[in-house]
Design a protein around this nucleic acid. Structure first.
Lengths: 133, 133
DNA sequence: CAACCGTACTAGTTCGCATAATACGGTTAA
DNA sequence: TTAACCGTATTATGCGAACTAGTACGGTTG
């Protein structure tokens, strides 16, 4: 359910945040679902519980999940909307990347084709995920 | 000519690499142009010569510039092509980002519009730069 | 009561980045 | 030729972020 890159530059806790969000977006994690507990998932991934705690705390700060001490941690009802909102704001990053490609004289159609292909691929995968529900 | 962000997460030496490449792409730096010397630029930017050395060494490894000990460091003849090639390879990163936006249910037309706008903006800026040469 | 859950805190390690200081060899021009 | 540049190399150091380790406390569940 979670795959970590131990050697990249992105911290583990950010990778965890990213992956939880992706699971929420593609429906693997639904509202009210319980997230794996700090201890069990830490053991399963071979990382320190504190690292996981940090990721969960950040997810909670973003309103993507809520914690119930003694019981567990659950996906918020409006988690998907919150994440989608954040992603929309992220589009400025996409724009920056496109500007750099433009500076490299990479033709616009090539970029657009790449974008559309990626989008179609993701949409297909989402449809796959939908069947599982 | 160079602007650094001292507080961001990206290392200074990577920012330097990025900016040199951008200057090559937009024509501020032309083939055979001499790059600022390690010492002078280090003083000018208020950074350590070693940090600059690291950036220059990486640029050289990529074949974007060549060093002539005792004389200076110069932009390679095919620097622009090399950078453009690297950027083309970078498009997988762009695709990944698009997939995430797709997962967030952000409509494709919205993404494409953003891409085209960014591209047009960059193209316009490139035309501006061209006039200066 | 036992076995979970989240939470909090302190301490210590590791690693990359940046700095500091110094030294060596080659080129250029006065 | 000598001074003033150039690139290059080496060693030591400081620093902060990320991560680990260990421990402790309170709440919930069965």
């Amino acid at each position: 359910m979670f795959v970590l890159d131990r050697y990249g530059r992105t911290p583990i806790y950010e990778q965890l945040i990213e992956q939880v969000e992706l699971h929420v977006l593609n429906g693997t994690l639904q509202p009210q679902d319980m997230l794996p507990s700090v201890r069990t998932l830490a053991v399963q991934l071979g990382i320190n519980p504190n690292t996981l705690q940090k990721a969960y705390a950040e997810l909670e700060r973003r309103g993507i999940c809520t914690s119930v001490p003694g019981s567990g941690r659950f996906v918020a009802a409006d988690a998907r909307q919150r994440i989608a909102g954040d992603r929309r704001a992220q589009m400025s990053t996409l724009a920056q990347m496109v500007r750099e490609l433009a500076a490299a004289s990479i033709p616009l159609p090539e970029i657009v084709a790449c974008v559309e292909a990626a989008y179609q691929g993701a949409a297909a995968q989402a449809a796959e995920g939908g069947k599982r529900l």
